[in-house]
Design a protein around this nucleic acid. Structure first.
Lengths: 135, 135
DNA sequence: GCTGACATGTTATAAGATTACATTGTTGCG
DNA sequence: CGCAACAATGTAATCTTATAACATGTCAGC
């Protein structure tokens, strides 16, 4: 292997993951790119390639409904293909909801028609407790 | 009112909805645009404006995970904000799953943390029964 | 030192969505 | 009628998100 830094991550992967962990909230690929210009990043593929791998290995989730990426908080949990997310539209914070029940329920629901689920996207947009209280 | 054609839809809204109904499958905004060039469509806003209204009134759903739009098959059902979709990655067909249980479950799950859901996105990608059998 | 595999760098472009502004059309009303 | 007000439409430009294609670098093992 070549540019290892930590537990099998390459330099670019490490940088992208750190940026997401630092943010503690979802970032768009282009925001990450901007934050890593000082580290030498210059073009989108550098970010997207790292993100692809990180998503593949379960360290990062893609939030399809807002075209953004967020570091996974349960690096050791099972259901990376079936996680659900609660996205606060006020503060941008994301909570990862892990519920095996839900995954099962979805599989069953679709399965009634003979549909086989490969990947499920569950994203709830609304207001988190904190922002609710502040309103 | 101005360009009415049917039940309160304007000309452009009618054209866009017809295109989606004709397709019987999800279309991207730009595909719709291309299909409506002969009817005089020339720029994205004409499509997006119509789509916005149609989504708002529940006649069309936006599939966030594939950046596409699909005509709603249950024009009279309740849960337009909580519908779930099974999207076949082989044939492109979409099945709309309506399950009040699921909506409740999601609200409860998020609600444990005090999160209030405004809109939920549930999209399952996989293989439909037909394509499964053909494999 | 060569080679094969993988990571990286770089340019360009595709695809999706919105902003801003000009134009037209309808309606209500003096 | 004439005109103001508003809704829908048309149009150009731009912005954001994502990928394709190709060049370069790096290291392991022979």
């Amino acid at each position: 292997m070549s540019g290892d830094t930590l537990s099998g991550l390459t330099r670019n992967q490490t940088l992208v993951l750190s940026a997401l962990e630092r943010a503690g909230a979802p970032l768009s690929a282009y925001t990450i790119l901007d934050q890593l210009r000082e580290e030498g990043f210059r073009a989108p593929p550098q970010v997207y390639r790292a993100l692809d791998k990180l998503v593949e290995m379960g360290a990062v989730h893609r939030l399809e409904s807002i075209n953004a990426f967020v570091a996974c908080r349960h690096p050791d949990c099972e259901g990376h293909e079936t996680a659900a997310f609660a996205i606060c539209e006020t503060c941008g914070q994301v909570r990862e909801l892990n519920d095996a029940h839900l995954a099962h329920h979805l599989r069953d629901l679709a399965g009634k028609d003979g549909f086989v689920v490969r990947k499920s996207t569950v994203e709830l947009r609304g207001t988190c407790a904190t922002c609710q209280a502040a309103a």
